[in-house]
Design a protein around this nucleic acid. Structure first.
Length: 951
RNA sequence: GCCGGAGUGGCGGAAUCGGCAGACGCGCUGGAUUCAAAAUCCAGUUGGGGUAAAUCCCAGUGUGGGUUCGAGUCCCACCUUCGGCACCA
């Protein structure tokens, strides 16, 4: 029985593709290729659970695109690899005692098997894993580029892409060394350089997660103060860590977003994350300083005079408090100031009377976790320092407070508080009974809200000025007086780049040791020739619950060395975060065998940028921002030729579990029982309740399902999860329906970008479609698989030809705009029209097989072979749409009367407006509608419709 | 709270430029085939009304308003829902 046997067909063709190396892609374009396409998937983390149905969604979308472009004659790069460093493998290793590399490579084998089973056209010879020494050698090399680079924000240059830019990452050797630094000797020069490198060490308070035994990046900590992985509490702790100076690139990361074709929503997420704001810095002189001799001598007037002469200094004097504000126009409404508890000025200005209270507050604030500082403690706390500052515009004396609602890490760590126009300031002012002065009003008397725009009041000479103009004027005036300047701030923070983990890339760095074996703080980069710094073999890599990284108890021969100059060296024992490997994998795919460099420049120039990048929206800020940052550094240093790595980005939507139904049934007046039911459960079924009203129904007894108005049915689809038991395993789907059905179903579910629920009967639906296609070609009543006698070399009818070319056009257009669901429905329409008719012209069916091929490649190959073709259809030319075959001599158009559809008439396709009108008027239906009415106006759109406006 | 996306039959969704709302699939109903079933094929399927018949009538794309000859599509306000951010001055 030659039924549609997906399993036989799929195994056969996967073997053929592998044997023939069908998808192996050399870097040199084949003769006659029309161009290059680099189509990339976000490579997976090979978890122990295996492939999830979410993976094949994006992978099928890219695969269809690749197969389509190959048939169009493009040279297509379509690689796959593994983002295999990371916490789960390490935690699994700790639990089971298996080395993480063992688990990782076993998982990779499973993932590879599953992906091959789905028939994706990857060039497997380009496979990489971030955990391979050959790979992370270059991750370390790129890190050294970051380490060896400083950002010059004023450097003007033109890149290889021909665009003019201001700001460039330059070699650290080109960093100007100020004379006073140079005069202090070598160590001072090295320190100066270290403070400008894109990779630097910092002692700052970091996110330490005791449960995971590691520090985390801001991006890895959720809004509620718990870790993104596992949801464990995270605390703030001062620790020495490696940071990457991504903030230096904030402006470039923001402005160069305009160059890429990404969804606006993702660009917006990145813009918000970078969080640029434009405002002003303003200096407030502290009136009294309790400790003499710290530079506070002199009157306010004297200070003002000197400022007017010397201008706004880079660093304020010790008794000057610098604030950042986006609303310099509200300066007259500043009634108090607030500094963050960590602000250095607090020690200098706190009065003796307030000292004890301030110290206690600062201590308390330092112990608070982020969680305490946000959600739980929304009410404002703070302490008066006893000191006052002078408002530079009106010389008002205003109190300085310490409060933790001001963050040390943003702006200058200090604010001028304008309670009339800032909700948080008002809340604080009300709590502590501070003055509120309104300085903005709406001339129309409408409520402008806190931050609304309007015109100035209570603002001296500026009264009556509109907000926008006021901002400009006062910023200019402050600058002239040496009291302020325009300033830009970013919400983006530097990237915490070190982790206390074994299973990650070691840093290619040495610490210099002194005679006693202590760190001197001086760093030496491992020479490029000594890369990779491989992970040492270790039995015990279990975190000890302290911030000591596992590598710190690595064998001594790994840990220590002596330099040629006799200096004792100790390795950096932190490791890189999982993001490191995924920051640049798209580059290595182009040239994964290269032992000389991370990518050959000519190869890079040919393949880059990635033309289409598809993956989950969960990487909208993290991976995609980090990756762009690294790429820009490599670009600035001349290692890549384009400034943006991913030209077009598409996020696939999440696939949810099957829709679940739940009934709420009234059992007594106002009392409900709730239960999960199967879809289409019938009245009278006994269902077991979830939440019982124990007064009415005993728990565990169940109740009889009714169907009346007191019963409410709730339908909801949930995220797939093990605990909910609604996970769909791709292996099962392939086993029961085949890979082609899985691919087709995932594309048919709905738009790629959309979140959508799984439906098993939907899978059956597309499987039925493929079986229908099969029967369009194969007579199932025959004894063996052979072309049906109904498929004949006869001339197609005009109608058949028109449908074929309509289908070619629609499917091609749909693939190019990634509208796979509609492409599939077009092919279904074609199939519905052709099945059951005999004879079925070959001239229509052959191109149809080619249209189907990107979506369901296995069955398409089988049918192509049945049609007598010896070669795989992978590189068969894509069918061309003959526009002349699309034209119809007559079209049906709607006729409206006062905008309402009243009739349909057939008109010649090329009829002009006049002809259409007279044909419409001649129609019996229309005449009936127009009888006894006056025609006021007629709108006729040729080929579209006719509308009579009547009275 | 702020920012963004989405609301269309019983369900997933279609309508690419403001021009026939509901393509295609699921589900359901009826029929054919069959000893019976599975599989397959054919027909119907937004709701309401109406007819001997239908190429009939009315309503209809979250709600309320508006622009237009004409609105699922554009504008204003609101509701619901999903996602992101969240003391960022």
């Amino acid at each position: 029985m030659p039924r549609y046997d997906a399993k036989r067909i799929e195994q056969k063709w996967q073997q053929v593709w592998e044997d023939r190396g069908t998808f192996v892609t050399p870097n040199d374009p084949p003769a006659g290729s029309t161009g290059k396409r680099y189509v990339l998937d976000m490579f997976p983390y090979p978890s122990g659970a295996g492939l999830h149905v979410g993976h094949p969604e994006g992978y099928t979308a890219t695969d269809i695109t690749c197969r389509y472009w190959r048939m169009k004659g493009e040279h297509v790069l379509h690689p796959m690899g593994w983002d295999a460093f990371g916490l789960p493998a390490e935690q699994h290793a700790i639990k089971t005692g298996t080395h993480p590399s063992v688990t990782t490579y076993a998982n990779i084998d499973n993932f590879r098997r599953q992906l091959k089973m789905l028939g994706f056209s990857y060039d497997w010879s380009r496979e990489v894993s971030t955990t391979d020494e050959d790979y992370y050698r270059w991750t370390q090399w790129i890190f050294l580029q970051l380490y060896g680079t400083w950002y010059d924000p004023t450097f003007e240059w033109t890149g290889p892409d021909g665009k003019q830019r201001v700001g460039k990452g330059r070699p650290i050797a080109e960093l100007p060394i100020p004379e006073e630094v140079r005069s202090q000797g070598d160590i001072a020069v090295r320190r100066h350089q270290d403070s400008h490198r894109l990779a630097y060490q910092s002692e700052a308070a970091v996110n330490w997660c005791p449960a995971l035994g590691t520090v985390l990046a801001n991006e890895e900590v959720m809004a509620d103060g718990t870790s993104e992985v596992g949801g464990h509490p995270v605390e703030r702790r001062p620790l020495r860590q490696w940071m990457l100076r991504i903030t230096a690139y904030a402006e470039r990361l923001l402005s160069e977003l305009d160059e890429v074709d990404w969804p606006e929503s993702i660009k917006l997420l990145q813009r918000n994350w970078i969080g640029k704001s434009v405002g002003a810095e303003v200096d407030f002189r502290v009136e009294t300083t309790p400790t003499p001799g710290d530079g506070s001598a002199g009157s306010f007037d004297a200070w003002r005079t000197s400022r007017a002469q010397s201008g706004f200094p880079a660093v304020p004097e010790a008794d000057v408090l610098r604030v950042y504000t986006t609303r310099p126009d509200t300066l007259y409404g500043a009634t108090y100031m607030v500094v963050a508890p960590e602000h250095a000025i607090v020690d200098r200005i706190t009065t003796a009377e307030q000292r004890a209270a301030v110290d206690a507050y600062r201590k308390m604030a330092s112990l608070k976790s982020d969680l305490d500082r946000t959600d739980l403690a929304k009410e404002k706390t703070g302490v008066f320092t006893g000191a006052y500052a002078i408002n530079p515009v009106n010389e008002e004396r205003i109190p300085i407070w310490v409060a933790d609602y001001v963050l040390i890490s943003y702006g200058t760590g200090a604010i001028m508080a304008v309670p009339a126009h800032d909700e948080r300031d008002l809340e604080f002012a009300q709590t502590f009974d501070l003055k509120v002065i309104e300085v903005v009003e709406n001339p129309d008397g409408e409520n402008i809200g806190f931050t609304g725009l309007g015109t100035a009041i209570n603002s001296g000479e500026y009264n009556g000025t509109a907000t926008a103009e006021f901002k400009q004027r006062i910023t200019a005036d402050l600058a002239k007086a040496g009291m302020g300047r325009e300033a830009v701030n970013y919400r983006l923070r530097d990237w915490l780049f070190s982790r206390q983990r074994y299973w990650g890339e070691p840093f290619p760095l040495w610490h210099e040791l002194d005679a006693d074996g202590n760190l001197t703080g001086m760093i030496r980069a491992v020479p490029e020739s000594e890369l990779p710094v491989t992970l040492p073999e270790m039995e015990d890599f279990k975190p000890k619950g302290t911030p000591e990284p596992p590598l710190s108890w690595a064998p001594d021969d790994w840990l220590y060395a002596t330099a040629a100059d006799g200096t004792r060296l100790k390795r950096e024992t932190n490791s890189m975060p999982q993001w490191a490997g995924s920051c640049w994998y798209y580059l290595r795919f182009c040239d994964n065998q290269n032992g000389e460099s991370f990518i050959d420049p000519a190869v890079e120039k040919y393949w880059l940028p990635v033309d289409l990048y598809i993956g989950g929206a969960e990487h909208a800020v993290l991976h995609l921002l980090y990756s762009r940052f690294w790429h820009k550094v490599l670009f600035d240093r001349g290692h890549v030729s384009c400034a943006e790595p991913f030209k077009r980005l598409v996020n696939q939507g999440m696939i949810l579990g099957e829709t679940e139904f739940r009934v709420h049934q009234e059992v007594a007046t106002g009392r409900y029982v709730t239960a999960d039911v199967a879809e289409g459960a019938e009245e009278g079924t006994i269902v077991e309740e979830k939440l019982a009203d124990t007064d009415v129904v005993k728990k565990g007894e169940g109740f009889v399902l009714r169907s009346d108005e007191s019963v409410k049915v709730e339908a909801r689809a949930f995220k797939m999860s093990k605990s909910r038991g609604n996970v769909i395993n791709p292996d099962d789907i392939v086993q029961n329906y085949g890979a082609d059905s899985l691919r087709l179903y995932e594309m048919f579910m709905g738009p790629l970008e959309q979140t959508k629920p799984w439906s098993m009967s939907g899978v059956e639906g597309v499987h039925r479609f493929l079986a229908r296609v099969w029967r369009m070609f194969v007579d199932e009543r025959a004894d063996d698989v052979q072309l049906s006698a109904d498929v004949q070399s006869v001339s197609p009818t005009d109608e058949q030809e028109r449908l074929l070319h309509k289908t070619i056009k629609a499917v091609s257009d749909d693939i190019e705009r990634l509208g796979f669901n509609t492409a599939i429905s077009r092919m279904m329409e074609f199939t519905n029209a052709f099945t059951g008719h005999s004879p079925r012209p070959r001239a229509c069916l052959e191109p149809f097989v080619l249209l189907l091929a990107p979506f369901a490649p296995h069955v398409a190959e089988e049918l192509w072979q049945l049609l007598g073709h010896g070669e795989s259809l992978t590189y068969a030319p894509w069918p061309k749409c003959d526009e002349s075959k699309l034209v119809e001599s007559e079209v049906e158009v709607p006729v409206q009367v006062n905008g309402k559809l009243r009739a349909k008439i057939r008109v010649p396709a090329d009829a002009d407006a006049k002809t259409m009108q007279s044909l419409a008027e001649a129609d019996v239906q229309v005449q009936g509608q127009l009888a006894e009415k006056t025609i006021v106006k007629v709108i006729a759109v040729p080929g579209r419709m006719v509308n009579f406006v009547v009275r």
